[in-house]
Each structure stands twice: as C-alpha cells, then as structure tokens.
Simulated assay, not measured.
Amino acid sequence: MLEELLIALIAILIGTKLAGHLCNLIGIPAVIGELLVGIILGPAMLSIVQPTDLIHMFSQIGVILLMFLAGLESDLGLLKKYMKPSVSVAVTGIIFPLILCAIVGSLFNLSWLSSLFLGIVFSATSVSISVQVLRDYRRLDSEEGSIILGAAVVDDIVVVLLVSIFATFINMEGDFALNGAFFWDLLGKKLLFFGLTYVFAKYMVKPLLKWTKRIVATEGETSIALVLCFTFAVLSEVLGMSDVIGAFFMGLILSNHSSKERIENKVVTIGYALFIPVFFVSIGLDIRFSAFKEHAMFIVLLSLAAVISKLVGGYISARASHINKNNAWLVGAGMVSRGEMALIIVQMGKSLDLVTGSIYSAIVVAIIIATLVSPLLIKFFIERGDKELAVKG
C-alpha cells in the first residue's frame, strides 16, 4: 500500500511540475497541465495512478489548503475602494451564468436540481488565475484590474454561500417542511458559524497569533495557522457546510493580519509541493474519453454559455459604472476564468451525486476550456486598448 502511494506521488509530482513548466512557457495556466497529467497518468491512458482512498484523502487536504490560500490572497481593501462596481460586476457575473448554464443543463435532460447546481458551478471565478494573468500584463494596479479582483472576492464569497445553502437542501433529502429544524439547518447553523467566525476574528485572532510568536519551536506560526485552518474546516463541516468553506473564511480572517505574507509563503510551499497537485490530478483521474463522444454538443454549448455569460455580464456592469468600452470588456474577460474554484465546487457536486460519470467529465472539460479562453481574452483586450491609446497619442 505504501509502495503504491509513493509511486503514485512520484509520478504526480514529476508530471505536474513538468506540465507546469511547459504551461508557463506557452502562456497558459499551470492548472490545465496538472489536469491533463491526471488524464494521462490515470485510468483513461497509462493507469499509473488510480483514484484510491489515500489519493482522495491527499486531494481533500489539497482542497482545504487551496481554499485557505484563496482566502489569504483576497485583498478586502479593494472592496472598500471599488465597492460599487465590484459588487455590480460580481452580481451579474453570478446571475448570468447561473441562468444560462442551468438552461443548458435542462436542454440536455439534467434534473432541475442538477441544472441549478450546474449554474452555480459556472458562477464561480478563479481569483488566482486572474491575479496571475493581470500580474503578467502589469495591470494589477489599474482601475479595471482592481475591479476584477474586488469582484472576484465578492464572487467567491457569494458562490461559497450559495453552495453551502444548496448542500443544506440536498442533505434534507426532499423534506422541506417549514419548521424549526428546517430553518436551523438552512440558516441557523450558518449564522452560528459566521457568528463564531466574527467573534474569533474580532477578539481572538490577534492575541492568539501574538502568543504564537513567543513559542520557541520550528515553524510555530505556520503550524498554528494550519491548526486554525483545519479547526474551522472541521467546524464548518460539523455545522452542515463543506470543510472548504471554513478554510476559506479562516484565510480571509488572516488576510488582514501582519503575518499574512509569512503564513502564505509557508502554506504555498506546503500546499503546492505535495497536496494541491494531488487534488488537481485526482480530478483528471475521473475523466473518461467517452465523455467527448457522448456529450460533444453539451460540452460546446456549456463552454459557450460559460464564456459569454461572464464576459457579457462583466461588460454590462462595468459600463454601468462608467468604465470605457474596451476596459469594460477587459473586466468581463477577467471574470471568465473558472479554474480551481469551479473544480472544487463540481467535486462537491460529485460527492452529492448531482453530477456523475461522463457528465462529470464533460463539465470538467468545459471548465478547462473556459479557463484556457480567459487569458487569451484578457491579452486581446489589453493589446487592443494599448493600440487605441497609441492612436490617440
């Protein structure tokens, strides 16, 4: 058992790092290469890595760390400066794909519950991929870059809440009687979680981290940060939500602390050196090539709906906030990428049996396509904007 795990980890780490290197050379997100490694190493092709329970546990830790980092990397200060346009872009960026992708699901005879979940999956936006692309083009500090990042933060929070509420209905197994138990499961547990989170953030986190600095031990601060991450992951699970939600909000709490960068650097090393690559590869392990033949039209229409809904939704809200046309399109393009956020949510849907088999593979393919298209759209609108400025100049 140990030998099989070590062989799988060797293959995963070598494969993902080489894939990441190649992706960086050709200018596409490394996550795409990691997903492809899962397909290549998994049952679809070479069968070197199998979706075992141990691989699943490693991947679950990877999801928790990934969401913790997503919270840490969120800059809440941007929401204060660009609150109105960011919220507006986030709202349309959730409503448009929620409706359009749900319609696509219903056209292909998915249940209303699965279709609604499909819309939620494609309402997500990848913060990390948007940040990387904007940094590469030196537009992070621009007005449109700040709106994209601010909207991505709001988008992540709202979609995470939507997923948690949706999961509550699923776990009730059709019993929707309007009684105390219903409202406790739907809202009570969530309010308790956020109440505890608020109390911890306001009164406990600073004294705790200050005390941590007095500990004479190797990487004491990082260890305590991971303890908090895992503790809130367990807490959110106990209160009827996914463990990744607790990890995400703990990251948000620590994102405003002076030790944020030190913690982030250490957790990035821990996560991306082992656990997070296993998560992305594990998703690729479940993909079967039969999905391409069986659901070709579904993949095409879902990909188009995913791209158009975010692009147009972001454009409309940005224009309403008096952003010029090209930069408004750039804002929309920055919201198109789904990346790890959508992959995490669709994985949750699989665990709830909302998406299974080849449909699951088809949805992952559509997520990959949307993630690939986003950097290309961003590049196009940035270059077009630069040309317009050059002509005016």
Rank of each mutant, 00 (worst) to 15 (best):
A151R: 02
F182R: 04
S123Y: 06
N179I: 09
L149G: 00
A177R: 13
F182K: 08
I165S: 10
V153H: 09
A151P: 03
L118Q: 03
L140T: 13
F122Q: 02
V127W: 03
D175L: 10
G174A: 12
D185K: 15
E143G: 09
I157G: 09
V127L: 15
G180A: 09
V127P: 06
G119S: 04
V133D: 00
R135M: 13
L191C: 11
V127N: 07
D156E: 11
F183A: 10
A177P: 05
I120L: 09
G180L: 08
V127H: 07
T125W: 03
I157N: 06
L161V: 14
L191E: 05
V153N: 08
S164Q: 01
A152H: 08
R135S: 15
F183P: 05
L187E: 08
I170A: 10
F183V: 11
S142T: 15
A181Q: 13
S128Y: 01
R135N: 14
V131L: 15
L134I: 10
F122I: 02
I129M: 14
A151E: 01
D185F: 05
L187I: 14
I129L: 14
D185L: 11
Q132L: 12
V158E: 03
L178G: 02
G180D: 11
G150S: 09
S146Q: 15
V158K: 00
A177T: 13
E144V: 13
D185A: 12
Y137I: 12
E143L: 15
